[in-house]
Amino acid sequence: MGTGPLLLLATLEGTVMAAVLALAAVGLSLTFGVMRVVNVAHGEFYMLGAVLAWAVAQAVPSAPLGFVAALLIAPPLVAALAWVTDTTLLKRLNYDPESTIVATIGLSYLLQQGALSFFGPDARPVAAPFSLRLQFPWFGYSGYKLFVVLAALLVLGAVWLFLRRSKAGLVMRATQVDRNTARAFGINVDRVYAGTFALGAGLAALAAVLVVPISQAHYLMGHDPLLLSFIVVIIGGLGSLRGTLIAALIIGLADGILSMLYPPTLAKIVATLAVALVLVFRPQGLFGAPAR
């Protein structure tokens, strides 16, 4: 295979990666933007989505139906868990940023242990709903992966429409800008927070359900997406949705292409250091506006 086809393959892989990453990171970005809390358990919500998808697919005999059922059942379940977490735990902490981080670290340990106890230490696959193969002149490519990109685009579009056009989205944005004024206008801020936290977790779970036919479900699988989502959200500017999307595209493509040319560990080292330096020297992110 020549350089051209190799680059094409790398770009395709990178695009798939970027799509999944964008879904996962938008959830993190939403919770940070609206609630000003960093959810360390975000990766575990992602993992739960994948594990639940496996459980649902096990219960349904036919492969396409199982996947569709997982897509419909797993994200709402994870969102419900996040809602409960918000109302019972984060609200009690008054959304203090540092306490929330410590509490969500604890939560992530709990969820990991729960998955390990009930799901076991093995990686388990979920069958893709269809097995279409696109034949390029040089290599075949899984049609399902392109479906993932399409689905991610659809969901992201829906999130954008929801935020821009719906009443609930307006209320969320109002809360993001000024929590106290929003409360003064009769907005139930507690419910907005719980809803945002649930939405963020649900998006992570959705990304995981989409990804599980490509990579497998595993109780430690939340670690990398958490780190990458952090990287994307920070590079894109904390709380900026558009920045998050652009950053997801850049990081996903860069990761796809660089990890074909260089060892993946080296790429990760460079990425984590880059994030630390961005936070130190340009805290508003590469695409965010400077703080007012």
Binding site: V102, I105, G106, S108, Y109, L110, L111, Q112, Q113, G114
Partner: peptide, 8 residues
């Protein structure tokens, strides 16, 4: 892990 999580 669970002990650490619950304690935190």
């Amino acid at each position: 892990l669970a002990v650490i999580g619950v304690t935190l």
